[in-house]
Amino acid sequence: MSTFNILFSIARKEFIDHLRNGWIIAVGMAFAIFSLLITFVGFGFTGAVGIGQEQSTLFSLINLVIYLVPLLGLLLSYDGIAGEHERGTLDLLKSYPFNTPLLLYGKWLGLFMVLATTLIVGLTAPAAVSIYSGHTLQAWTLLLITSVWLGAVFISIAILFSVLILDRGKLIAIAIGVWLLFVVLFDLSVIGILVSTEGDVPMNLVNLLFYLNPTALYRLLSIDLMMDEAMIQQLGLMGQIPPTPTLIAAITAWTIIPTTIAGWCIRTSEK
């Protein structure tokens, strides 16, 4: 029981701290403006290629999420442990009578709550507009859940680096590097390989590469869960998307493995 109390105390403190420093409101509003713009404009897919408005809006929002949510997760969490170190509270908390990895798991939970609230703030307005126009709530709910989950992956990655490198200056550079790698460079590299080999690469190998990138997994999962057959056909992904449980297992692994390694690292750092 006390383990849960400690976990929730840390998570609660993290949430209150970010609520008061304006992070949730500022980032949530910015996300809402982007989402609303996409919802209203519909990104030009509408009509021209014969795909429904809701589908095209959702697809555009999935791309927005791929660009923004990993960055939000990383910027929110990059100094999770390093910040405590700089404030002088890390050693203090390590001297307290609880297992130190709980600090990390509690922080993860708190940051997850912050990100989830931010995305709820950001996606509520476009979802309301869409539902008012007669579209379904289900797709928006799925978009919210998968987006929060993608953010959770990047919170885990950022926390792992935050345990390994207790220097905020280096960590901000690493956070941006991780974002560039997974969001920009990875896709470009895959395209580069396909172009340079004129597509003569086994599809299984390309699929395998996607497991190395959580944003690619998120894209496939979102398309699998939210897009109809016509849209999947249009995207040229019919028969190419791995089974849903496999994608869920892979994203779960991306969430759990970095946090577990971070927990192990913070425990051994006590020596």
């Binding site: 404030r87 002088g88 509270t89 307290y96």
Partner: peptide, 25 residues
């Protein structure tokens, strides 16, 4: 009591001690 501790600027003194007290059970 470490040599320098900045604590959490956005929490009140009472919230800080409530938080730390819960961690000390």
């Amino acid at each position: 009591l470490p040599e320098t501790t900045a604590f959490y600027p956005n929490l009140t003194g009472q919230e800080t001690l409530r938080y730390l007290s819960s961690l000390k059970q």
